[in-house]
Design a protein around this nucleic acid. Structure first.
Length: 577
RNA sequence: GCGUCCGUAGCUCAGCUGGAUAGAGCAACAGCCUUCUAAGCUGUGGGUCGCAGGUUCGAAUCCUGCCGGACGUGCCA
């Protein structure tokens, strides 16, 4: 099924050919939504664009095209307007037939890729021996939604959780644990880590031992390695708990930690040296890349091995990108990372190109996001200035949602309240993060995200709940509603139907651009149009049975698309609230 | 200094590859529940799109230069 824009473009292409003997590429024809209902549904500016080429004034071109296209029964009206726009009014019959087809399509009109190329999505990436905190929230939520979109349109998605489980910090932590004879099962590892860090900075003797411990870890010293393994296992348990709480897809199979790449680093460095891709500068091994400058305007290289022989995060990222391209056969790689890392990844991609791992057919990209801010406009912290841990943050959202749900439904038992509140809280956390352009910083607020007014998860879920309630009252399932024949006639039915037809276009656009907030705005608009329709058209009390069935069908399609859209964002729906 | 990103209503934000009179929500005010969940709907007020040029039939959008803010800028990640 073509999306509506493309369908109209093809018609225009044909019209230009027939009327002016002019062949124009489909990509050069612009068709867009009108800015105003009174201008119809779609408009094109081709007559303005082609005026010079055809050596005719825009209104003249517009008139010819309008006469030609008026015969097409897709449109109820085609008119020229303003300086030469052509406005298209779509015939309700078109919406009826399109939606009657779409309702049985599991992909809801979305064009699914015929082949299933591999895409690697790198996201979440917490660190072992540290609790997950607010800094991991956006990567986890955004990455999860991206995976869901890409899977839906046909990519073979390979999730990669690049866990930080290696490096000097483990030397000091393990040394601290051994010296104090601690059993890590009974310890707060975050506190141990802070203590170890403090000693490392203050006590030179301890620092020396910690550095020796790093070497022992790398050499697989049995005692050292077994403590490390326990630390990793304990942390992974914590990560799993967070992922379950957030309903994200990440599991143990998606973990590919830094330590996995460790054996590959020295051979990689040797290879790059041998091939003269890297060089030695100021005692360190580096790759010089065009276009990167330091603060003195000198060439800024990517540092891949320190002068003491140690590796850096660029080294591991380099090994990882090679693995993803060569072993995982990725045709596309998406890094869901903080915008502050942009330059690092620009260098990484440039290096991958320079080394020759990828050609133009491989799309290396990032989904950059801004910082979560508190009420004060500064990075979100606790009152005492500490980083906000994820589990308490989720708990607090659930707690606030519980109050809201139990107030509204005093007769519900505790379990029902808890389950509903959990879904509502997680939906709110995710939606408030996803609904703004991700490159921008955003202000975190429990009150706003849990509000039923405006562009929020509760508002959308409520629209869905009203639909479910309606279907219960009609005593039919959603599938039964979809079996009815759609036959819309009223203005607010047409507005809603028009919006529903555009779902496929939105999904396809987002799968390329990764502008997840577009889906939020699409769904918000869908919910508004639905509420509008619901308030103004009787459904169960429609005048005729045919009208009632048509409206139930429209309700069914609306709810199906609403649920699918939310699902792509990683948000679960509710039947009652 | 250089680089990246951001600047749209009092507040939080949309505005896609340039298109007609720049849109939502919150907050403020005024209406609508014997009638499908009023956690909803309807209406009113509120703007030199940071500033100045340029390109264009046409600029919030593209280009250049400023102003303001955030971040980055070789041995942390």
């Amino acid at each position: 099924m073509q999306n509506l824009f493309k369908e109209v473009k093809i018609k225009l292409q044909q019209a230009l050919h027939d009327a002016f003997n002019l062949d124009v590429g489909i990509d050069q024809i612009e068709v867009q939504k009108t800015s105003h209902q009174k201008f119809g549904h779609l408009q094109t500016n081709v007559s303005l664009k082609l005026s010079k080429q055809l050596r005719l004034p825009p209104p003249k071109i517009g008139q010819v095209l309008t006469d030609y296209l008026s015969k097409d029964n897709t449109f109820s009206k085609v008119e020229i307007a303003g300086p030469g726009f052509i406005n298209f009014f779509i015939h309700p019959e078109f919406f009826n037939s399109t939606l009657n087809q779409l309702k049985d399509d599991p992909y809801l009109g979305v064009n699914v890729m015929p082949s299933h190329p591999h895409v690697v999505v790198d996201y979440s990436s917490p660190n072992v021996a540290k609790e997950m905190h607010v800094g991991h929230l956006r990567s986890t939520i955004i990455g999860d939604a991206i995976c869901r979109f890409l899977t839906f349109v046909g990519w073979d998605v390979i999730r990669q959780n690049h866990i930080g489980d290696w490096g000097t910090q483990f030397g000091m932590l393990i040394e601290y644990i051994i010296q104090n004879e601690l059993d890590i099962k009974n310890e707060n590892i975050t506190k141990c880590y802070q203590q170890a860090k403090k000693m490392f900075d203050e006590d030179t003797e301890f620092a020396k031992k910690a550095k020796e411990r790093v070497v022992m870890l790398q050499q697989h010293d049995e005692k050292t390695h077994s403590i490390w393994e326990k630390l990793v296992a304990q942390s992974e348990q914590h990560f799993t708990e967070v992922y379950e709480q957030l309903d994200v897809l990440l599991g143990e199979a998606d973990v590919r930690p830094e330590s996995f790449y460790n054996p590959k680093l020295q051979p990689l460095i040797d290879y790059l040296q041998k091939e003269n891709i890297s060089s030695i500068d100021q005692g360190a091994k580096v790759i010089f890349l065009d276009g990167f400058k330091d603060k003195d305007n000198h060439p800024l290289p990517m540092l891949i091995q320190k002068s003491d022989g140690g590796f850096l995060y660029a080294t591991t990222d380099l090994a990882a990108i090679q693995f993803r391209i060569e072993t995982l056969k990725a045709k596309r790689v998406v890094y869901c990372v903080d915008a502050r890392q942009q330059q690092h990844f620009d260098m990484l991609f440039a290096a991958a190109n320079k080394i020759g791992w990828c050609d133009e057919s491989i799309d290396l990209n990032y989904a950059l996001f801004g910082t979560i801010l508190g009420d004060d406009g500064k990075p979100f912290k606790t009152r005492s200035g500490d980083t906000v841990k994820l589990l308490p943050l989720i708990s607090k959202a659930i707690e606030k949602a519980t109050t809201i749900v139990s107030t509204k439904n005093p007769s519900w038992d505790q379990q029902r309240v808890n389950e509903t509140a959990r879904t509502l809280a997680v939906a709110s956390l995710k939606y408030s993060d996803l609904c703004n352009d991700k490159i921008k910083n955003y202000a975190f607020s429990y009150e706003k995200m849990l509000s039923f007014d405006g562009n929020t998860a509760p508002y959308l879920l409520n629209a869905y709940v009203r639909v479910q309630s309606l279907l219960r009252k009609a005593n039919i399932s959603m599938d039964q509603a979809l079996d009815y024949t759609l036959n819309i006639t009223e203005q607010n039915e047409i507005q809603l139907a028009y919006h529903l037809v555009l779902f496929s276009y939105e999904v396809e656009t987002i799968s390329t651009s990764l502008e997840l907030h577009r889906m939020c705005h699409y769904l918000y608009q869908l919910a508004s149009l639905f509420h509008h329709f619901y308030e103004h058209q009787p459904i169960l009390r429609a005048e005729t049975n045919e009208q009632k069935e048509s409206r139930l069908c429209l309700v069914g399609i609306s709810s199906k698309i609403l649920a699918q859209g939310l699902n792509l964002l990683g948000i679960k729906t509710l039947d009652h609230m």
